[in-house]
C-alpha cells in the first residue's frame, strides 16, 4: 500500500512540466526515503534525477519499495486536471497495475480521482559518483533561462567558461556570435537574485543548447539554479525544491572529435 499526500500539489504539476519533454516513460521509485525518479533521454545524453523526500509530504505511507512505470505525458495530462491550490494524493495498492491521483480542493468541497494505467519499463539506472567540481555557479534561475533562450536564437551549442572574471556563456551561428558574462554579485538585497561563483580551477565546456533549454522548464520550481562544472564530466544543473528535495539534470558535454 502506498499513499503520499502532498499539500503543495502544484509542485508535482511543475515537476511533470519540467521533465515530460526530456523523458517519455520513467519509473517512479517509492521508498522510505522518498519519491524519486532517475531517467535518461532517448539518446542517453541527458539524465534527470528527482527526489521528493518523505518528510516533505503531509502523509507518507510506503509499506515496501515500489517502482511504478508511468508515461510522463499521460501523468502530466492527469495532473493538469488538479487545481493549483489542490492537495494531491498518490495512491497505489500492492501489485496493482494502476495508480490513482486524488485531488482535493483546499476547502474540501471538491474531490476528484484520476486513475492511470502503469506500464512496465526496462529502465537503466546509472550510478552517479560524488565528484569534486571545478566550478559551481549559483544564479537566478530566470536569468539562466533567459540566457539559454537568447543564445539558442543564435547558435546550437553553448560554451560555458568559468574564470575568476565570472561565468561566460558563448555561442556562434551562421548569423554571428554572442557572449554573456555574469560576474559574481552578492551585493543585491535578496539572496535569490545574487550570482555566486565558487571556482577551484578554470573550466570551459561545450553543451547542446537544446537540452539546456529543456532543463530550464524547471525554472518555476526554484528561484535559483546551481550549475556544477568539471572538465570531462557531465554538467549538473540543479533546481532545489524547497523543503522537499531537488531536480537535477545531467548533460554530457560535447567533446573534440
Amino acid at each position: 500500500m502506498l499513499e503520499l499526500r502532498l499539500v503543495q500539489g502544484n509542485l508535482l504539476k511543475k515537476v511533470l512540466e519540467a521533465v515530460k519533454d526530456l523523458v517519455t516513460d520513467a519509473n517512479f521509485d517509492c521508498s522510505s526515503t522518498g519519491f524519486s525518479l532517475q531517467a535518461m533521454d532517448s539518446s542517453h545524453v541527458a539524465l534527470v534525477a528527482l527526489l521528493l523526500r518523505s518528510e516533505g509530504f503531509e502523509h507518507y505511507r510506503c509499506d515496501r519499495n515500489v517502482s511504478m512505470g508511468m508515461n510522463l505525458n499521460n501523468m502530466a495530462k492527469m495532473l493538469k486536471c488538479a487545481g493549483n491550490d489542490d492537495i494531491v494524493t498518490i495512491k497505489a495498492d500492492d501489485g496493482s497495475d494502476t495508480v490513482t491521483f486524488m485531488f482535493e480542493s483546499p476547502n474540501q468541497d471538491k474531490i476528484a480521482d484520476f486513475e492511470m494505467k502503469l506500464m512496465d519499463i526496462d529502465s537503466e539506472h546509472l550510478g552517479i559518483p560524488e565528484a569534486e567540481y571545478h566550478a559551481i555557479v549559483r544564479m537566478p534561475s530566470s536569468e539562466f533561462a533567459r540566457i539559454c533562450k537568447d543564445l539558442s536564437s543564435i547558435g546550437d551549442t553553448v560554451v560555458i567558461s568559468v574564470t575568476k572574471e565570472g561565468v561566460k556563456f558563448s555561442t556562434r551561428g551562421d548569423i554571428g556570435n554572442a557572449n554573456v558574462v555574469c560576474r559574481q554579485n552578492t551585493t543585491v538585497d535578496k539572496p535569490e537574485e545574487s550570482t555566486t561563483i565558487e571556482m577551484h580551477e578554470p573550466v570551459s565546456l561545450t553543451f547542446a543548447l537544446r537540452y539546456m533549454n529543456s532543463f530550464t522548464k524547471a525554472t518555476p520550481l526554484s528561484s535559483t539554479v546551481t550549475i556544477s562544472l568539471s572538465s570531462e564530466l557531465p554538467v549538473v544543473v540543479e533546481y532545489k525544491i524547497a523543503e522537499m528535495g531537488y531536480i537535477r539534470f545531467y548533460l554530457a558535454p560535447k567533446i573534440e572529435d
Binding site: M40, S43, H44, V45, A46, L47, E124, H125, L126, G127, I128, P129, T157, T206, A208, E232, L233, P234, Y250, A252, P253, K254, I255, E256, D257
Partner: peptide
C-alpha cells in the same frame, strides 16, 4: 568538430 558525448562514457550502469 565537436561530437556529442554520452552519459555512458562517464557513469556506470548499476
Amino acid at each position: 568538430l565537436m561530437q556529442q558525448g554520452a552519459l555512458g562514457n562517464f557513469f556506470v550502469h548499476t
